[in-house]
């Protein structure tokens, strides 16, 4: 055990469970700003631990965490698995093929089954918006949303915020207030975009979203972001550029004439990036389609691309979420 609880200075957050009074983490939309900040703060110790050669804690020793993924995933599943294992929990992965367990009572039945196995936390990814909330309402243990349809992907937004905070601090900047962020890509189908819009605006950033009209959802202005169709205009003055891939698997019908046409209008090339602030940071939640929404020389730009850093922070954020949400079960003082 090398981790120490140095962060969370007393008084910055409410005491005990009041700092994060939720049983589940289903969406950023359910969180207050100080609760978002609390998770970010809690994650710092795990960032430190993960950089040690001996990266293990026994905090969740004896607990069982089930990763129930009803939709294919590589990186998120791996990230949650590593997070659980580094905290000493017994982690079980359940790959439920979308086709066999999508319909009917089966989803609820699956949830009841996991519940009956006395999981101490369940991490769920599902292809339908709202599916995670549905399951969370039916089980007795904390539920973490690892992505539900086009709704939310809260740990992705939290890890993006943590990544950004580290990068900003390295540049001597503490606050998100007024930070100009442009998110470009398939906003309509992206749960990452929704969670990030809610999270980053809550933290005080000024968000622009950019996509062709068919890939921008209606009523986006009411969420407090500015919508653009012209990527060049959206990049003007941007301090952070976050690219999203086209979610072809969620599209019904044709939204874009071709990949090369999409790249022509919305691909982040080095030339385009020059339209943003000179030292603008580049992010992408992955998986990337190099040569479509982002060029390799931009994706790999030293000192400015945060893409691998996002992956690193993902493990720490998921450790923090697992820790915080299982405190009640573990009888942590002030949480039980």
């Amino acid at each position: 055990m090398t981790s120490t609880r140095t962060s969370s200075p007393a008084g910055r957050f409410p005491a005990g469970a009041l700092a994060f009074p939720h049983r589940d983490l289903v969406g950023i939309g359910e969180l207050q700003t100080h609760e978002i900040l609390y998770i970010l703060e809690e994650a710092e110790q795990w960032v430190a631990l993960n950089r040690q050669p001996h990266k293990h804690s026994d905090l969740l020793s004896g607990l069982t965490i089930i990763n129930a993924f009803f939709e294919n995933s590589t990186r998120t599943l791996l990230s949650f698995e590593i997070a659980g294992k580094r905290l000493g929990a017994d982690v079980v992965n359940m790959h439920a093929a979308q086709s066999s367990v999508k319909k009917g009572e089966t989803l609820i039945d699956t949830a009841m089954t996991l519940n009956a196995m006395r999981a101490d936390a369940i991490v769920i990814r599902h292809g339908s918006s709202g599916a995670v909330r549905l399951i969370a309402n039916r089980v007795d243990c904390p539920v973490l949303n690892a992505g539900d349809g086009q709704h939310e992907h809260p740990t992705q937004a939290l890890l993006d915020a943590l990544t950004l905070r580290h990068a900003l601090r390295a540049r001597g900047r503490e606050e998100f207030n007024g930070l100009r962020i442009t998110i470009c890509g398939d906003i309509l189908h992206s749960r990452v975009a929704r969670s990030n819009m809610l999270c980053l605006t809550a933290l005080g950033a000024k968000l622009r979203v950019c996509a062709p009209p068919a890939l921008l959802p209606a009523g986006i202005g009411e969420i407090g972001v500015e919508a653009f169709h012209d990527f060049d205009a959206a990049l003007d003055g941007a301090e952070v550029v976050m690219m999203l891939r086209l979610q072809n698997e969620r599209m019904s019908g044709q939204f874009i004439p071709s990949a090369r046409e999409y790249r022509h209008l919305y691909g982040l090339t080095a030339k385009r990036l020059a339209l943003a602030e000179p030292d603008a940071l580049v992010m992408h939640p992955g998986p990337m389609n190099r040569g479509v929404e982002i060029d390799s020389d931009v994706a790999d730009l030293p000192g400015r691309s945060l893409i691998t850093r996002q992956v690193e922070m993902g493990v720490a954020i998921r450790m923090a979420c697992l820790d915080v949400l299982t405190r009640r079960t573990r009888g942590v003082e002030g949480w039980a």
Partner: peptide
Amino acid sequence: AGQAVATAGEIATRLGLPSAP
């Protein structure tokens, strides 16, 4: 309408539901 289950607007956008104008 396609596969839409909601009317396009702020609520459908927040919920991430397939929607039609």
